[in-house]
Amino acid sequence: MVADNGRPTSSLPSWAIEVQGLTKSFGHQLALTGTDLTVRPGEAIVIFGPNGAGKTTLIKVLATIMKPSAGSVKIDGLNLKDNAEEIRCRLGVVSHQTFLYSNLTAYENLEFYSRMYNVPTRTQRIREVVDMVGMISRLYDRVGTLSRGMQQRLSIARSLIHKPSIMLLDEPETGLDQQATAMLWEALKSEGKEKRTILLTTHNLERGLEVGERLLILAQGKITYDKPKQGLDLSELKEAYQHYTRVKA
């Protein structure tokens, strides 16, 4: 069922995401090397990192589509190993790929996903999320005929369809213009009273500093830098980024 009810409010887990010693290897290649990460419920964190630092791997592991090689992951206090399906109901994922079928219309895509997530009152909910991303006029167009930016907006609508409490965003701004980005950020951040937990990865430092409450750097498979936003300015962040992502000779 949808994530926002059925969760006992009295015993809210203290961490929305709790990662310990997470390692992911592909044969001999290590993508994540025993990293730790904790995110409070409602917190918006931004993870920076160069290409190949393990950002996408981290998101995929959290999204339960990749199995960790070692370490533990808890989402809302639930162990990822044993409660994958329960966890999936609480996660919304946006990536640079849209997960949309280009031969189906926007409506059909959303209908498909809402059925998969057991969304009640489907028709109404589909209109709601499409309205949030400003795509009502293109609801019955085939996804393949839409521009990249529009597809990305739909992808965001898709990720919100089941009212997830945690958003995992893997460079979601691909193909979006600035105005759309700002608008979509509002849609992602909260819905009604509930503030969502957000984990965003990007290599755009300015943008990350703007939206994140906590800023982290992932380099060579490990979180190496973790600072709250207060009192941090762009030049300081840039310096830290360069320091931590410099390839060790």
Partner: peptide
């Protein structure tokens, strides 16, 4: 468009 990933989520 990595639809299989979407399905697996």
């Amino acid at each position: 468009q990595a639809c299989l990933d979407g399905l697996m989520m």
